[in-house]
Design a protein around this nucleic acid. Sequence first.
DNA 1: ACGGCCTGTGTAACCGGTTACATGACGCAC
DNA 2: GTGCGTCATGTAACCGGTTACACAGGCCGT
Lengths: 330, 330
Amino acid sequence: MPDATIRDVARRAEVSVASVSRALNGFANVSDATRARVNEAALELGYVPHAGARSLSLARTNAIGVVLPDLHGEFFSEIVRGMDREASRRGYLLLLSNLHAGTDQAAHALSAMHGRVDALIVMAPHLTSEELERLLPKGLHAMLINTGDRSGTHPMIRLDNEAGVRAVVEHLVGLGRKRLLHIAGPDENFDAQERSAAFRAAAAEAGVAFEVLGGDFQGASGELAVQRLLDQGQGFDAVFAANDNMAIGAIQALRNAGLKVPEDVAVAGFDDIPLARHMGLTTVRVRIAELGERAIQLLLDSLSAKTTRCDELHAPELVVRATTAGEAGQ
Amino acid sequence: MPDATIRDVARRAEVSVASVSRALNGFANVSDATRARVNEAALELGYVPHAGARSLSLARTNAIGVVLPDLHGEFFSEIVRGMDREASRRGYLLLLSNLHAGTDQAAHALSAMHGRVDALIVMAPHLTSEELERLLPKGLHAMLINTGDRSGTHPMIRLDNEAGVRAVVEHLVGLGRKRLLHIAGPDENFDAQERSAAFRAAAAEAGVAFEVLGGDFQGASGELAVQRLLDQGQGFDAVFAANDNMAIGAIQALRNAGLKVPEDVAVAGFDDIPLARHMGLTTVRVRIAELGERAIQLLLDSLSAKTTRCDELHAPELVVRATTAGEAGQ
DNA sequence: ACGGCCTGTGTAACCGGTTACATGACGCAC
DNA sequence: GTGCGTCATGTAACCGGTTACACAGGCCGT
């Protein structure tokens, strides 16, 4: 036997479908006798309301679409965990779609969301403002996380990369470091752009020598960057990588070259992944789960009170550990 | 203006809704002229089909519900990543619901899936067979991951905990270790149960002395367990923790006590989280993403060919690293 | 010229819920 | 006894798609 529908329940309880609907949804205008009969019938048939049909007639799904790029480990799970925590607290489900490949794939993923979710959270650090604007379904509330979009059409929440980077640079300079190396993330990544721009600005302001090398957020690229610079014989007394993975790679390369961290070269990263604590890596802590949680909060609030149009900055926090502990060695 | 519906498109293209539906879904029996007019109208109106309505009439959602317990970091993201990879390859979306609290919460989460998904993946290592059977919606295909359920009603996939544990114990015993300590996971967790049972069996078979202490899968509990045993003055030359987190905690405690790993005490874990590699921890590697991927595969296959009723074991793999490298110290 | 077939299109029922509105029963005041 | 308000209930339209079926027109063979 297939699933029971509301009409099956109505037949069994010998009432109309309207009464069943009212009874099960706890409306006041239902007699006790009817309510009891309906409940009994529903129980006997193992009736479970069809959420799809329900949301079609209510024009409300109680689900939020989440579109994320192909994130690495910790970051992904943490942000989804935060979102899920807040969403389930408010009775929402999460409809997940990873955004792997090109923009046509993205368009498909986004349109598949239409009609199954009440709102959308999009994190697409590799899409430009225009692409996003074109791809986003028109009628759907969307919240953007960490995109370059500045049109103000959508509520958004961003990581305050600049504040984090500034804190690191000031910390390093405060320790007496004079020649800084920054290992940047991939060019097309929005966070990577912000971080390297902030680094240049802060280092220039502080009046220290600096250099910027490219990386791709993977550990190996941090290792490679440091190696290359050492091979060229260029000196530096501090490394700031755009994320922890690359910072850890950098430490590896430094140790391989017989240099001491932090005596010879101080190292700092960004993100505060669990590994960072274990390695004693100075870094910028991003409370990722909190960010996801907050995104859902703001999104749902803006959904009910149509007005709220926000642009929030999520402030990260400098965590000083062993890799920058001492004074400069020189 | 709200979203355009199929009727809006029909009006604009001056055809019937049936023709619009046929044209947009690529049916053959539509004239080229009509198809062109429909496409044009759809484009002009920015029409995106309403997935909810579509799935209602098709009785097919192209979504899979995923119900997971409140997992920790790496494991969660990896399994979801694997599932998503396979799901999006096949054109499915994932509807996610974390299973936090009690069974009524669980019932709610599961019934919310009815009518929005074509099938369900449930991972609930803390629910018994009977609870599961009662909670699972009747009409819905469900795949179980790592549950104790043996009824055979649902396709399922399990981690071969026993094989993993045996490999570790044999490895430790092969190194000459004579007194093993096992730090178990939480009592109500199915994997934890299997692992500690397998440990007792394997250790007894090998004829070595052993002890089992309770933990909760968190690092701190591993640390605590070792500390307590050391305080009691009990000796052991190898620790096998039910997961890597606790193994790392154990190492911490051993080092604090001035003991050397692996010379004095060898340590092994389970899972192979990224941290394990960095710490040189011997462990059992679980290819989590692969497990998720495979689960989706099997589920979708069993969905199309109604017959496939499987019970697959996912074999893990021993990874020997520094924490068990040498011979016993004695 | 006629019947049969094929093709393209429209009409309307249906998926499984919600809900505006109509209805009928009842109680109460006049 | 009539009129009115209140309350529980049923009928049917609706959400936005899909699709069975009916039908019109064109082309064919005889």
